[in-house]
Write a protein that binds this DNA or RNA. Sequence first.
DNA 1: CGCCACGATGTAACCGCTTTCAGTTCGGCG
DNA 2: CGCCGAACTGAAAGCGGTTACATCGTGGCG
Lengths: 337, 337
Amino acid sequence: MASIKDVALAAGVSVATVSRALSGHGKVSEASREKVRRAAEELGYVVSYNASSLASGRSRNIGLVVPSVARWYFSTVLEGAASALIDAGYDLTLYNTSGQDRHRQSVFSELLLRKRLDAVITLTLKLSPQEVQQLDSVGKPVVAIGGLIPGIATIRVDDFNIAALAAEHLISLGHRDIAFLGGTEEFEVDFKLGSAREDGYEYAMDQAELPVRREWIVNADFTTQGAYQKVRNILANPRHRPTAFVCASDEMAFGAILAARDLGLDVPGDLSVVGIDGHELGELFGLTTIAQNAARQGASAVAKALALLGGTELERDPTVGFFPTEFVARSSTSPPA
Amino acid sequence: MASIKDVALAAGVSVATVSRALSGHGKVSEASREKVRRAAEELGYVVSYNASSLASGRSRNIGLVVPSVARWYFSTVLEGAASALIDAGYDLTLYNTSGQDRHRQSVFSELLLRKRLDAVITLTLKLSPQEVQQLDSVGKPVVAIGGLIPGIATIRVDDFNIAALAAEHLISLGHRDIAFLGGTEEFEVDFKLGSAREDGYEYAMDQAELPVRREWIVNADFTTQGAYQKVRNILANPRHRPTAFVCASDEMAFGAILAARDLGLDVPGDLSVVGIDGHELGELFGLTTIAQNAARQGASAVAKALALLGGTELERDPTVGFFPTEFVARSSTSPPA
DNA sequence: CGCCACGATGTAACCGCTTTCAGTTCGGCG
DNA sequence: CGCCGAACTGAAAGCGGTTACATCGTGGCG
């Protein structure tokens, strides 16, 4: 493997010049820049990130901490972030805590601190003040997606209002018996996201002076399977069933729709369903939903992290400003029978 | 940030001893090991990976190159690999080529060569001889998942036989008009996976002396949406429709089932569907499938890479031996009407 | 025509750790 | 009681870059 010295030798200049020519820092005459480029090319030289990082303190590598990668939202954000990073010439180091607490532990106590990262992006993770402090002490920028962490730049949608909007849509169609499908259990420890949406739903119900039934607020862990089960159980009760569901994720909405169909109910005839996400499959299910562009959230987080690195501190108050969402009306909602 | 020197100073030993004590390489008395441990703890010392890698040549970091992260198979393998790596104390650097050729380009021409990786795992990617050579020249172990790359350790399932088995299952139930849903377009460039399964299907049909209709072999890019469309089109033709589908992925099988239902057809009454994958949602759809444990494939690849690193070259002929799969009979298949 | 400022380069001091090599210490043994 | 090897430990030489600082020409200007 060619090292910078080989290139310097081949180009007939010093290693300093090679470094400057290749990295673009500092002045180099066009002539030597060209010589260096040619020599490097010829030798198939690629700088050693380790050496470079060690010497300069910059590693062109950012860390992304995700709770899982199996959920639509997470994998889509990841996809968006990965794409943005590769374009910026950065490496992406992925930390998947995967619900396993020991993984989460080691991620924070070790991995992130190993000084190999220029910045870290967290996805729907609630950091304890201690963890924030740990990250802070490393002095690397942190940007969070989907949750408000004190003192940290954040990308997030307005969960409360989104959910309220979803509920209001159903209410305006004439529904009164509206259930809510949330997902908290697993991530409750991590974030109040589930409950922000739940709060929005309750708020809308209150505003419309509709009763909120405890037994119609169910937790399905954001999964299709969970939603299917829960919805089936609720709909199976012939005494009193909701005419509509607000689902905190599209994946759960799919579960709701499938459950309804399996019980011989028509969507939207017998049951209206609204989701939140903008999942690709939504179209296929005719799902009315509130779309959030997850991929762009990932890309935005990367942009923000990069900006912070560039010193461009373009931080206005990071707390202000929600990521935009879009109401997508399709065929899973209609006035109740 | 505390450096190894600070720890040495605090512990009253040399940096060499600190290094040995913390890394476990070389002999250190229990006494000094303890002193070092305590000092390190107190100072919140964490070794600098960059410095360590530079000096030792090992970086405790492996690269994973994936074509996308939005597909069940890919994200599940990723999840498995990530988990195994975190347990091994390794970092995971993710390269998502995402179908974008320019991304793939830069991944191979630069990222992988930056000497920050101890090994690389590729997922369903066909490497050109030149790319293999590039990787080889870096001297790092490469293990591939899902595809045979000459001279490289590979984890893969027996696509041909799996597909044949799926078809045979339908044939044994009495089906004669069996269609095949494959997905090649996007990944065809990368791998013959799609066609290996297609070949298996055709082989089974041939063996049973059943005709293979060209118009019943369709490509849906492994996506649910694609499958939905294609299957809808095929089933919409009242003149002659298949009574069963072999799908090269569960996600496509879901699309097929949804399409059938939307046309008012009963599954399995009017249409039987077999998938390949073992997707979590399979249960919900009652999908008969051939399950491959994707997460374990990821973990296996990691284990193999780690073994190669450990010098344990446990490579018997890497070509031999398929990853095990399991036939899961559920309710989406039955004898034809 | 001499001096100065500025651009282009080279020298060398790190960056923070690993590892070789050369001691030092000790206990055991002849 | 002297010698030897095993067990530890420390000094120092890198690993492959980056960058502050010194050096060296030059063209512009007084």
